[in-house]
Design a protein around this nucleic acid. Structure first.
Lengths: 230, 230
DNA sequence: CTCCCCACGATGGTTGACGAGATTGTCAAC
DNA sequence: GTTGACAATCTCGTCAACCATCGTGGGGAG
């Protein structure tokens, strides 16, 4: 889930800027988020409420609440009486976020190791096997999808609402770093081995090992990311 | 900083409900937060925007934005078209939050160990010494204050904005659990020893030891809390 | 050319109104 | 008496128009 930081960008995207409210299916918040994520608003660009409202074809209050939420998600920053602008998370902060995710997902893995039922473990192994198959088939992107599935499943098993929530918000802040590090040469085999170790630790109901494995895995991802864009 | 989960409750509190906007010094958000924290609104009580607006003597939109923020802070929960109610964090969730804080503060301690300058280390030792003095004087509350100072200082040293931010929001969710576990019999000495270990690890620039020490410290706090209210 | 002041721009907040979704209560049919 | 449909009500979500406040930049005074 970090090997490929991907929030599906609500793929519709195709010209919904009619001022008529025909396309009011998405909430203003989602529309605005999507506009930021897909880069229709440049980083550090000022988001004037009235302009955005006209652009999206909604009222100013809707934009205001949307901005408030996006601020909490870390997508925009806000100064009183000076307005909002889209936040640019630099490489430095990206590393911070990955570190934080590492400890949080480590915690999740720990709980998963405690909670996992035999069926859960079979599930995880099946996901891993599918990842193996796709790797052998040379389809790195498909394998990366499986990667996301695995991490998601572990979070479910953790049954730790607090950690899951925080991880989700952290993820959203990294939308601009949609690298699939698994695509880097040699990374895919490393990644598979790390995931294997995680699953094995969970299967063995060894919380310490599970946390350790998850953290080393994510730190390697962070490292790969760092090297990739340094 | 966990031994005494205390957000100073903006002690003014004294009847500021005049509809006249005389007492508009606090932002609506702060007023509402304070009202919830101090228990003027019962847990699970419905927060009807218009009522709250009248109660606080502000407009409905102000209340709306305040509610949105408090929702993100975890103080209220919100369902579309069904309104907001003050969120009750049960013991189970409190434990979750403490666990999460433990790993996050562990991360912070790790960074603090890497970053700390000689002066920083002297600082920490001074705080610790002051804590020792106050403990010897038998003033547990004062010692608990020093405890908060120490944790805060470590967070500063960590220079890890992401972790600090998450920890702050987690803290605010625990406002209802304002126990000072240090007041429990025997806990104070334990607590001092744990803090001592943390400072020593930071002084030795040993990130692993610092994280470990912080996590064991906080897990003991969680344990004490659990036992205290079980 | 520099500096200060003020008008303008934008936000924060208010009021009033309207529609949508949800809940509740009533009433009729079985 | 119970049940189901329908209507009234409640509350939120949004819009529109408005005013007060704060920042900022440009123009006038020196």
């Amino acid at each position: 889930m970090v090997d490929e930081i991907v929030n599906n960008p609500a793929t519709d995207n195709a010209e919904t800027r009619r001022t008529t409210r025909t396309a009011a299916l998405l909430s203003p918040e989602d529309r605005l988020r999507e506009a930021i994520v897909t880069g229709r608003f440049q980083p550090s660009e000022r988001l004037i409420e009235s302009d955005v409202a006209r652009e999206l074809g909604v009222g100013r209050s809707a934009v205001r609440t949307a901005l408030a939420r996006l601020e909490h998600e870390g997508l925009v920053e806000h100064e009183r009486h000076r307005g909002a602008r889209v936040r640019l998370v630099g490489a430095r902060e990206a590393v911070e976020i990955l570190e934080t995710r590492a400890v949080l997902e480590g915690l999740a893995a720990r709980h998963a190791a405690s909670n996992a039922s035999p069926e859960d473990i079979e599930d995880l192994k099946a996901i891993l096997a599918e990842m193996r198959r796709r790797l052998d088939a040379g389809d790195l992107l498909a394998a990366s999808d499986q990667n996301a599935v695995l991490h998601g499943r572990i979070l479910e098993l953790a049954a730790h609402a607090t950690a899951v929530r925080l991880i989700a918000t952290l993820k959203s802040q990294l939308v601009r770093f949609q690298y699939r590090t698994i695509l880097l040469p040699g990374r895919s085999e490393h990644s598979f081995g790390e995931h294997d170790a995680i699953v094995q630790a969970i299967a063995a109901h060894d919380p310490d090992a599970a946390e350790r494995a998850m953290r080393t895995h994510l730190s390697h991802v962070a490292e790969a990311l760092r090297g990739h864009q340094a």
